[in-house]
Amino acid sequence: MTGVLVDTTVNGDAVQFACPTDETLLDSLRDRVGLTGVKEGCGTGDCGACSITLDGQLVCSCLVLGVEANGSEIGTVEGLADSESLHPLQEQFINHAALQCGICTPGFLVAAKALLDKNKDPSEEQIRYALAGNLCRCTGYDKIVRAVQAAAKDLRKKKK
């Protein structure tokens, strides 16, 4: 492998990895950093299973090159919970049975967090459109939307 060295911060920790220039950040995170919570469902930006934040911006990691992440801050599902407890979104996904097979769950959680970071009280329609880039084939989205609504409520309460 002829690779380049990439310096990043992943979920708050300094991480350095080497990757070929044509490797996607998705592959780098999974194969080189070991963060297999980031999933590949399509590799073409259509399913959102590989959603991460890159310098605070929600992106599909399959549509970013590993080398592009140099100097960037990356957030993945593995960084959602703190050492004490789960994030309210994670708790409500479990409480609402908002996952069946769970393969899409990491991407949904990252995307839903990006939404709630920007919009504390989204409407059902806003939630549905914000999550339109994340495909789920098991749930019909019903319980996912309810879980996001419940988590938004929890987060608003926490702030008060």
């Binding site: 930006g45 959102g48 959603s51 890159l54 911006q57 929600l58 992106v59 599909c60 549509l63 970013v64 995307a111 990006a114 939404l115 914000a130 339109a132 880039g133 994340n134």
Partner: peptide, 9 residues
Amino acid sequence: IGSDQVQGR
């Protein structure tokens, strides 16, 4: 164009 994820790029 695309999803929120795609919009970010």
